[in-house]
């Protein structure tokens, strides 16, 4: 890793607290931030309630979800040896969203933990089907085809499930599930997602050397000591845990998992192992900044955050296709 790349990663790290301060000072109400921080967690003043109960959990959730999506994208690209892989693009997020919809709109009686657990199961089924349907080491086109098919199918099921949901608002909420949102989130959602995202991150950490070995292909990876089902399963579960639990609380936020690993790959010398952590860092930063943008431009008129990330991501995707056609490296 060159010093220039190290500096860039240090800059990303340093940008995190700055973005955090930006996020904490963004919102429809003007608050006295230093005073609110000074008055502490337990204070009853409206400024500190807004800071500690509303803005901080939302910002923390943005960081968590962004990190999970960056991590999930990097792991998925590494596992499928394919730069086009992305949880939202290939239906993993839809799998999680479908499960979350079934739990939330139909299973009111179930306990809170069921939501992330079932969302993780949904994500796992979706990522597993992509993996099986495309076949291991599949070409980019085959992979995207399989992913798009699964994504379309799951999105249709989502619409169907919402259509028959008892709530009057259900049908309009397809937008939320397809684009994601961080509005009105609190510490309860953070606490719900946090343990599962951490668990997913640990699994992917344990699989980092497998992802490195996979740069050489499945056979060589097996000859380097990564044979058997254990490692692919570890990655699949890691992705499902990280992505599934973040979709359960924030909906499907696309493109972070695609754009971030791409931008970060050169910074870590293309190493799929270190890419995981740098993508988590950059994903967290990107989603937090996207949320700051949402808060400062549209305010309570809540443009879905997924729309913002798509605005950033879609042109990037076009660029990827065009440059891929030129370089043949895709």
């Amino acid at each position: 890793m060159s010093t220039r790349n190290k500096t860039l990663i240090a800059v990303l790290l340093a940008a995190l607290p700055v973005a955090m301060l930006l996020a904490l000072s963004s919102g429809p109400v003007a608050i006295d931030l230093p005073a609110a921080i000074a008055s502490g967690w337990r204070s009853d003043s409206s400024d500190s309630v807004i800071l500690w109960q509303l803005r901080l959990p939302r910002a923390v959730l943005a960081l968590l979800v962004g990190a999970a999506l960056g991590l999930g994208g990097a792991a998925m690209q590494g596992m499928l040896r394919n730069p086009l892989a992305e949880p939202a693009l290939l239906g993993v997020s839809s799998g999680a969203a479908l499960a979350a919809i079934l739990v939330l709109y139909y299973g009111a009686a179930v306990s809170g933990l069921m939501l992330p657990l079932l969302a993780i199961t949904g994500a796992l089924l979706a990522v597993g089907s992509v993996w099986l349907l495309a076949g291991r080491g599949a070409s980019a086109s085959r992979l995207v085809l399989a992913g798009v098919a699964i994504n379309a199918f799951l999105s249709a099921l989502m619409a169907l499930a919402l259509n028959y949901a008892p709530s009057m608002f259900a049908m309009q909420e397809i937008v939320f599930w397809l684009l994601g949102s961080l509005a009105n989130r609190g510490w309860d959602q953070v606490l719900l997602a946090l343990p599962f995202i951490v668990a997913g991150a640990i699994m992917l950490f344990l699989a980092r050397n497998y992802l490195r070995a996979l740069s050489l292909g499945e056979t060589s990876a097996a000859s380097l000591g990564f044979a058997g089902r254990r490692y692919p399963l570890l990655v699949l579960f890691g992705i499902a845990f990280a992505v599934g639990s973040s979709v359960a609380v924030a909906g499907t936020i696309g493109f972070i998992g695609l754009v971030v690993p791409h931008l970060m790959r050169p910074l870590v010398g293309q190493d799929p192992g270190r890419l995981l952590w740098v993508s988590a860092l950059a994903g967290a930063l990107l989603l937090l900044l996207a949320d700051v943008l949402v808060l400062n431009t549209v305010g309570t008129q809540e443009l879905r955050i997924g729309a913002v990330t798509a605005f950033i991501g879609a042109p990037f995707f076009f660029w990827l296709i065009v440059s891929g056609r030129r370089e043949m490296s895709l």
Binding site: S215, S220, L224, G225, G269, Q270, D271
Partner: peptide, 30 residues
């Protein structure tokens, strides 16, 4: 086993554009 036995398959297409030296270092993963 991987430390005892090194194997080079007939075809091995690198998925990422690693530097040659980094690719060689993957042989030390075991």
């Amino acid at each position: 086993r991987a430390q005892l036995c090194a194997y080079l398959p007939q075809q091995e297409a690198p998925a990422w554009s690693l530097a040659a030296q980094d690719l060689v270092a993957l042989g030390l993963l075991p």
